[in-house]
């Protein structure tokens, strides 16, 4: 009897405790402070061009609370895709807020884009769509995450460097006629300069993928400018307009001047 009661008591306490630990307090920074921060970033990144809030031209899907702050999957959707020239992903409170700028080429289907980022603290994440007529439209979500930027790239720096530059590309059927989906994976530690070596007390120098160009045949699909917020082993999913018999070619380079190029056969009749 006593034993049963104790068990129930213990179980109740566990429930109370887990519930408590899961609900972290909300960030102290008020909305006004976040908005001011965004205005500063926007002024710097977009040279004070007008940025119009939108609910329709670009949308962000991100976890409200990151499972792993060093690998937060973000999906951008651009329903009126024919109007879109490029998109920017900005993580307001990361040390370098611009995570990526992706420009769509003629072989792209700019309807959706998925990537993985590091998020350092509770922050707004902005996506900005640039339309073909040169206007900017933004949307934002709030993500709870912490420590994603200083989190190590792998079990050790040596491990993290293994296979650097290896690439994979996976293909899937797209939702629309002629459009196919591709997922590009690149092995790279993407050291962002914020990982300190415990022994030397020195920071592992930044070394990250800063430029990727994806082509299908002789047409550009995407031009990507990346920064320190892209996760270790960057992965990017996108759609493209398939021309049978044409390969996909990826050229990637990092901030140390290394360059990797790889071509992939696209399975025919994906669409």
């Amino acid at each position: 009897m006593t034993r049963t009661l104790r068990t129930v008591f213990a179980a109740a306490l566990v429930t109370a405790f887990c519930g408590g630990s899961a609900s972290a307090t909300d960030p102290s920074q008020p909305d006004a402070g976040r908005e001011k921060r965004w205005q500063e970033i926007a002024g710097y990144l977009f040279d004070d061009r007008d940025i119009v809030p939108t609910d329709t031209l670009i949308k962000i899907d991100a976890p409200k609370r990151a499972e792993d702050a060093a690998l937060v999957p973000i999906t951008l959707t651009m329903p009126e895709k024919d109007k879109i020239k490029s998109v920017y992903l900005v993580i307001d409170d990361n040390p370098a807020p611009l995570a990526a700028h992706v420009t769509f080429g003629p072989a792209a289907d700019p309807g959706a884009l998925q990537l993985r980022v590091r998020i350092d603290t509770y922050t707004n994440v902005h996506a900005v769509a640039e339309t073909k007529d040169g206007k900017l439209f933004s949307t934002a979500v709030f993500v709870k995450a912490s420590g994603g930027c200083s989190a190590p790239s792998g079990p050790s720096d040596v491990e993290a460097m293994k296979g650097m530059g290896d690439m994979r590309m996976k293909f899937a059927k797209g939702v629309e006629k002629k459009s196919s989906e591709a997922t590009l994976m690149i092995r790279h530690p993407n050291f962002n300069g914020m990982q300190m070596n415990q022994l030397t007390r020195l920071y592992t120098p930044p070394r990250y993928i800063d430029k990727v160009t994806v082509s299908h045949g002789d047409q550009t699909v995407l031009d990507i400018v990346g920064d320190i917020s892209l996760s270790t082993n960057p992965v990017l999913s996108f759609n493209f307009m398939q021309t049978d018999g044409q390969p996909m070619t990826v050229v990637a380079s990092d901030t140390k001047g290394s360059r990797w190029e790889q071509s992939f056969q696209v399975p025919s009749a994906m669409h």
């Binding site: 190590p152 792998g154 079990p155 050790s156 491990e159 990982q195 070596n197 415990q198």
Partner: peptide, 29 residues
Amino acid sequence: ALRPAFDARGSFYHQRLVEMLGPENVGRL
């Protein structure tokens, strides 16, 4: 593999733990 793992992660863990427990309670690796 513990040594390189400490090299890569030690300061990160230390800092996070200091935030929670205060430096006097954390100690060094």
